[in-house]
Amino acid sequence: MKAGDPCPCGSGQTYGRCCAPLHEGAVPFSAEALMRSRYCAYVLKLENYLLATWHPDTRPSELDLAADGSKWLGLEVKKHLQSDDTHATVEFVARYRIAGKGHRLHETSRFVREDGRWYYRDGDWS
């Protein structure tokens, strides 16, 4: 993906101004920014970024995004709620396709901030 391409997270910004800096090590300013960058990382199959931004208490030992055959099609953020300085939730709907069949993931994700960094903790799906 090129810096001038539209960012897959749906922010309306270019990838170079939106998620690319986070993928390159910048600290997300909010849980929503982290969630958008994680969605973008799924689109781009950036397993190391996903693992690094997953809270150690719930992080899987590995990911194999190449094997799942998914193609991510779009993201809609429904709600972002920061309950205090270290806890937030983001509700979103992500659309994707596997083997030609469309799917929809509706999740409310929980995030925690430790040492100034947001981490994805877990989520509830519907």
Rank of each mutant, 00 (worst) to 15 (best):
A94E: 05
Y96Q: 08
D85W: 02
V43Q: 00
V43I: 03
K71V: 14
Y42H: 12
W72R: 03
A99G: 00
L44N: 05
L81T: 13
R110N: 09
P56N: 01
V43G: 03
D64T: 11
R113G: 04
T86K: 07
D68P: 00
H106N: 08
L81E: 14
T53L: 02
R113T: 12
R59K: 07
A52V: 04
H103R: 07
R104D: 01
G74F: 00
L63V: 12
Y49L: 08
R97W: 00
G102A: 08
R95F: 01
Y96D: 06
G102L: 11
D57T: 05
S109E: 06
A99I: 01
W72C: 12
F92A: 07
S70W: 02
P60I: 03
E76L: 08
S109T: 14
I98K: 02
R113C: 10
F92K: 05
T58E: 02
S70V: 05
L50Y: 12
S70F: 04
A88N: 12
E114G: 06
K101Y: 01
A52F: 00
L65G: 09
P56K: 06
F92P: 14
S61T: 13
V90S: 13
L63I: 10
P56S: 04
A52D: 10
L50C: 09
S61R: 13
P60R: 03
R113S: 12
H103M: 07
V77W: 00
Y49G: 07
N48M: 06
H55Q: 04
V43D: 07
A66G: 10
L50S: 09
T108Y: 10
G100W: 02
L73N: 03
P60M: 05
Q82A: 15
H80Q: 10
Y49V: 12
R104I: 08
W54C: 03
E47N: 14
T53D: 01
G102D: 12
L81D: 14
L65K: 11
D64L: 07
L81G: 04
L63P: 14
E47A: 15
L51F: 01
T89H: 11
S70R: 11
L65E: 03
S70Q: 13
K78F: 09
K71Q: 14
E76I: 06
H55E: 08
K78Q: 15
S109I: 12
Y96M: 09
K79R: 15
L75M: 05
A52E: 14
W72E: 09
E91Y: 09
W54K: 06
A99F: 03
L46R: 15
K79H: 14
I98P: 00
A94C: 01
L73Q: 04
A88S: 15
A67Q: 08
W54Y: 02
K79I: 04
W72G: 04
G74W: 01
